[in-house]
Amino acid sequence: MVAKLAIRDAGKRYGDLDALKGCSFDVADKTIVSIVGPSGCGKTTLLWSMSGLHGLTSGQVDLDGQKITGPRPEIGLVFQEANLLPWRNLMGNILFPFEVKGQKPDMPWIDHLMDRVGLTGFEKRMPRELSGGMQQRGSIVRALSLRPQVLLMDEPFGALDAFTREEMNRLVEEIWLETRTTIVFITHSIEEAIFLSDRVIVLSKRPGRVMADYTVGLPRPRSLEVMASREVFDLMNQIKADIYGMSSMRSKAAE
């Protein structure tokens, strides 16, 4: 089976800093893959390469076996903060991609998505009038409005409180169950990664490369019981050990 996304020996240098080096993995179609790793290990750098926003210094990212050389309509992007344009109201923000592309907006689909994320009735609100969770839901609608085949999400809920975050996680799962969009999800929450993913990839500290790769075979939708199971507990500890093992190595090196 050809992977939806294939990251092949990806490397990125900023000046004389190696942000990413020899990073390779595949993302199967219609799956959710999470990427966790210490802060500054190159996760955003990697995601931007996958979205075609910037190139790599070495290696490549393929979409359906074709090298990505620039932004692609098949790929949607959700940013770290909601990244809504503050001078446009919510609907203005959601129609922004269509405006840029000079395309007629797919209103039934947009209305469906708005309803799905609970934003119906808030179309005219300005971003500053919306809570952080609502803003991020708006940005998810914006990213999905063009029906992308792949959705790249960069720590989308990092700035939200724990309750809102769990709610958003369930929402992402629901949306995935409906659309089966391939999702690459960057997070620094191991629990969030396990809850959402079919696979969790652990990156090493900078320069980032794959240091562990776990398959999460839990049934969906993932209930509280499943998340409280022994299996999840063990996996969580395993991933923690991977990450903290890295940092203990770093502190040893510093001695």
Partner: peptide, 16 residues
Amino acid sequence: SAKIALARSYGASTLQ
């Protein structure tokens, strides 16, 4: 840069 990246991710031109 995030807002400009957003626009670019939808293929916006420099003028746009």
